[in-house]
């Protein structure tokens, strides 16, 4: 396993996540796709740290921060999904169309 393997994996994950965000209709699906993109970045950090800068810890450390941030963001996101589900009884983005102009 070399650095390129990890980078390819993270690139593919990021692309899948981006594709998911742009094409999914279900809000939960979009949330999951965003998580994929965040984890792609995490793989990058750890792989760069392991292969290019061994003996230092910035990469590992950043990943801990990102995992925490992602958790906080998902909590708020799910709360907002609950709020809109109570109002509109739908988790599909095409039903969220009160605001337009």
């Amino acid at each position: 396993m070399t650095l390129s393997h990890y980078l390819a994996l993270s690139g593919v994950l990021f692309a899948i996540g981006l594709f998911g965000v742009l094409t999914r209709r279900n809000v939960i699906g979009i949330l999951m796709s965003i998580e994929l993109m965040l984890n792609a970045a995490n793989i990058n950090f750890v792989a760069f740290n392991r292969f290019l800068y061994p003996g230092r810890y910035e990469g590992h450390l950043t990943v801990i921060f990102i995992i925490t941030l992602a958790a906080a963001e998902v909590v708020v996101g799910l709360a907002l999904v609950m709020a809109i589900y109570k109002n509109l009884k739908s988790v599909y983005v095409e039903d969220y169309n009160i605001l337009k102009g």
Partner: peptide, 23 residues
């Protein structure tokens, strides 16, 4: 609620892109 969810989805996407850029 709708404004917030749209803001959240776009904001979450932008955060993910930013973090990937930082990596």
């Amino acid at each position: 609620a709708e404004g917030a969810i749209k803001y959240f989805l776009m904001g979450g996407l932008s955060t993910a892109v930013t973090i990937y850029g930082i990596s």
